[in-house]
Amino acid sequence: MLELDGLTKRYGDRLALDGVSFAVGDGRLTGFVGGNGAGKTTTMRIVLGVLAADAGAVRLDGRTVTATDRRRFGYMPEERGLYPKMKVLEQTVYLARLHGWSTAAARRNATELLERLGLEERLDDTVESLSLGNQQRAQIAAALVHRPDLLILDEPFSGLDPMAVDVVQGVLADAAAQGAPVLFSSHQLDVVERICDDLVIIADGRIAAAGARDALREEHGTARWELLTGGDAGWVRDVPGVEVVGFDGGWALFEPESDASRQAVLEEAVRRGEVVSFTREQTTLAQIFKEVVQ
């Protein structure tokens, strides 16, 4: 487990991080979200040792992270950092070799990873000749090729089409399944919501919310319920203790003041005929983000 404990960082008079604390669990995908300038990149660079914190600690399995530990980390920066004139496979093998892999093992792992990321036909092309989306895939391969113990990615889904997002998601899920904590930032809240196990929201250098995705949904969830029937649902407006928020034919979105009033809606719907669905409204990550940041 990666633990961040009270990280503080100043740039002159500006407080970039103010006591940032959260954990990234072993084998879990943790989404790290916040607005521009919120402190995401600064936090990740401190974990990697690129920046030094003014206060606080970074721990791995309960002990302070060392330079030796960091050599086993994988990192993908938001700004692409590959050598543009090197060939894709050549560069990925080179990066694995820097981490101590033999040439044969590095080539085998790099080839397998690049093929999985959909670059099998571009192995001998230079990085600069790739589309931006394919450069992003190559950058992800560079972060993963040495099979890191911990993975940190800054905007890994930027520039990827939906199919490529699914491919990268699968690769990251496999890395997590093999035991690596994975911390990734993204402005694409729908993607984060779909793939993360845990969520950390940062605003103005402070952690606004952190925890398991489903637990945060429950904590910040609305009390709204959706009813879909085979007939007209206008009668819901007449149920005591119910405020109808939206209505359209057989569909109604409502807020019950109690469990009893919610149950009354369901019982009346059953009495009147076919109930297609009766569910609590799903709280989105975007809704949670707006609530805790504002």
Rank of each mutant, 00 (worst) to 15 (best):
L2V: 11
L15H: 09
G19D: 08
G19K: 11
V24K: 00
V33F: 00
T43V: 12
G49D: 11
L51W: 05
R63N: 06
A67Q: 14
Y83E: 09
P84I: 03
K85W: 04
M86L: 15
M86N: 02
Q91R: 08
Y94C: 04
L95G: 04
L98Y: 07
G100M: 13
S102A: 06
A104N: 01
R108A: 15
N109P: 01
N109H: 15
E112Q: 07
G118L: 10
G118Y: 11
D125T: 03
T126P: 02
S129L: 12
S131R: 13
G133K: 05
G133Y: 06
Q135G: 08
A143F: 07
P148E: 12
L151H: 10
I152A: 01
L153V: 14
F157L: 05
L160K: 01
A164H: 14
V167L: 15
V168D: 07
G170P: 04
V171W: 06
A173P: 00
D174W: 08
A176S: 03
Q178T: 14
G179Y: 08
P181S: 10
S185H: 01
H187T: 14
L189K: 01
V191F: 02
V192K: 00
R194G: 01
A208V: 05
A209N: 10
D214P: 06
E218V: 10
T222R: 15
A223D: 15
W225P: 07
E226A: 02
G231F: 06
V239Y: 09
V242A: 00
D248Y: 10
G249C: 01
G250S: 03
G250R: 03
A252H: 00
E257W: 03
E257V: 13
S258M: 09
A260Q: 07
S261Q: 05
E268L: 07
V270H: 10
R272S: 07
E274W: 09
T283P: 02
T283R: 08
L285E: 03
L285T: 03
E291G: 00
Q294E: 14
